[in-house]
């Protein structure tokens, strides 16, 4: 299903006045494609990602998955948690792996959070670890993995529940250019395979060749509407058309 951000505005209190972090932004990310959200620091891209993740309620606007409204300004914390649990995969800027869990357990945790036995996702977890190239490190803890391996495990963790939406925050910020490109390639190809509508936030346009579309934010405004990098997404659809 497609991810729709409909007229999202996010205003923070700033002392006696307010600060508009995101200003009436609309964006659609079709299923199975990756849209990169570009912009300098402070442009509002991470704030928009936080809204899409249900970590911050929008001041106005709504987040939809297909025709279903997922998040609005009045969405409760519990509903936002369910949104993340049931529909979302998140890759954080830092890998954010739990120190006490092995790579495989980081993925099995996903099943446990949903009240299922970890073993029910073991096969899928191993497939994903294989897909990101760390299958041989499945039983190692984060301290025994390199930075790149941790990032790959984090990507596999975000996808283990086959989420409808994948949100990725600055995945290349700590990597050199070549590795950054490979990570974006990996995310883009996995998004295609799993059908996840993927929104990837980055400030580095040089690593974004593999993505399907890009959009640019500046001062909270969508400066350029989502522009396709390619003419067609898998399935022959046009991708990342501006919404609203």
């Amino acid at each position: 299903m497609d991810l729709h951000l409909d007229r999202i505005t996010l205003v923070y209190p700033d002392g006696t006045s307010t600060l508009t972090a995101v200003d009436d932004v609309s964006l659609t990310v079709p299923a199975g494609t990756t849209t990169a959200l570009l912009g300098p620091s402070g442009s509002g891209k991470s704030s928009l990602l936080a809204v899409a993740a249900g970590l911050t309620p929008p001041t106005s606007g709504r987040v939809r998955l297909g025709d279903e409204v997922a998040l609005t300004p009045t969405t409760s914390v519990a509903e936002a948690t369910r949104w993340r649990r049931d529909h979302l995969g998140v890759v954080f800027q830092a890998p954010r792996l739990l120190d006490s869990l092995t790579a495989l357990e980081q993925l099995e945790l996903h099943a446990h959070l949903r009240g299922r036995r970890p073993a029910t996702v073991r096969r899928r977890a191993l497939e994903l670890l294989d897909a990101v190239g760390v299958a041989d490190r499945a039983h190692h803890r984060p301290a025994q993995l390199s930075g790149g391996q941790r990032q790959r495990v984090a990507i596999a963790r975000a996808l283990v529940g086959d989420p409808a939406v994948l949100l990725v925050d600055e995945p290349t910020s700590a990597l050199d250019h070549d590795r950054g490109v490979r990570v974006v390639e990996l995310i883009t190809s996995l998004a295609r395979e799993t059908g996840a509508a993927t929104l990837l936030v980055s400030h580095d346009a040089s690593t974004l060749d593999p993505v399907d579309a890009t959009a640019r934010l500046a001062d909270g405004l969508l400066e350029s509407p989502a522009r396709p990098q390619r003419t067609e997404a898998p399935g022959g659809r046009c991708v990342s058309a501006p919404a609203g």
Partner: peptide
Amino acid sequence: SADVAVLKALGATTRY
């Protein structure tokens, strides 16, 4: 605390 924040961001409920 950082791990708890990650778990919440991954969808863990406060009750869990």
